[in-house]
């Protein structure tokens, strides 16, 4: 099935194949098989506790960091199973960025927050490759990409904790972008923000989807409707339905999806 992946240009960017996750003895994700197409925004929706965040965190192996978690199955990223033995987890995470629900600025300046990723990786690749001017350029580029540059360009050296929550979240976005991920995972990226700050994040994500694959977990249906090109609907740890957003929202195939969209469940 996957042997012809190199020849097929319309191959999905991420392919999950019979993915199972347990927390201890609790089987939280069951037999998930789904594709996430390249570019565009894929929204993972479903009632709370259905495993949305778990699914998201499985894509860059952040689940590894939680003790007592067990993962079975495969996730193919550009033709590489990220759960293969011998896969470099830090490499996977460099290619798959993550934006947490609550902004988590690192305890350092705005500049250092964005430069954190490039600095971490600079030893490993062409050593000392990134000069200071390069870093300056990277920081500016990514702060612009996150729509934050104009607001902070005069105080790059001040502590990131002084920014407003909305600004902090865009800083986290810039920070995640600074390592040039192909995929960006966003876990309810606007849930801690006020509506205006949320709007700004949504706008940036819509802009960013042109060059990247973006996966967004959201419990807000309206947000999914506004942003998503593709939708994955989870229900109690199982994948009920997945497909293009237009079709899912207009004519869901499964009764549970219909009920969820109508607000009868969840």
């Amino acid at each position: 099935m996957l042997s012809d992946r190199k020849s097929d240009m319309s191959e999905p960017h991420i392919r999950m194949n019979d993915l199972n996750v347990w927390y201890g003895s609790y089987h939280i994700l069951r037999h998930i098989t789904a594709d996430i197409p390249a570019q565009g925004i894929t929204a993972i929706i479903g009632p709370s506790g259905c495993g949305k965040t778990t699914l998201l965190k499985s894509i860059n192996r952040l689940l590894d960091e939680m003790e007592g978690t067990r993962v079975q199955g495969q996730i193919w990223l550009d033709g590489m199973n990220i759960y293969d033995n011998g896969v470099d987890v830090t490499e996977v995470r460099t290619r798959v960025g993550f934006l947490a629900p609550k902004p988590s600025p690192l305890p350092m300046s705005i500049y250092d927050n964005v430069a954190y990723g490039p600095r971490i990786h600079q030893h490993d690749h062409n050593s000392r490759g990134s000069k200071n001017q390069d870093l300056d350029r990277i920081v500016e580029l990514n702060l612009r990409a996150a729509g934050l540059w104009e607001e902070v360009k005069d105080r790059l050296r001040s502590s990131a904790s002084q920014l407003s929550t909305g600004q902090q979240q865009r800083l986290c976005l810039a920070r995640a972008l600074a390592v040039k991920p192909d995929v960006l995972l966003c876990d309810e990226p606007t849930s801690a923000l006020d509506p205006i700050a949320a709007q700004k994040i949504e706008a940036q994500l819509r802009e960013l989807k042109k060059e990247r694959t973006i996966v967004v977990v959201t419990h807000m249906l309206r947000q999914a409707r506004r942003m998503a090109d593709h939708v994955i609907f989870l229900w109690m740890g199982e994948l009920v339905e997945a497909g293009p957003a237009m079709q899912m929202f207009a004519k869901p195939r499964d009764g549970r999806t219909q009920a969820y969209l109508d607000g009868d469940i969840g």
Binding site: D88, T90, I120, H121, H123, D124, S127
Partner: peptide
């Protein structure tokens, strides 16, 4: 191997 891995 990457330096960061060796360091760790």
């Amino acid at each position: 191997m990457k330096w960061s891995k060796v360091e760790e």
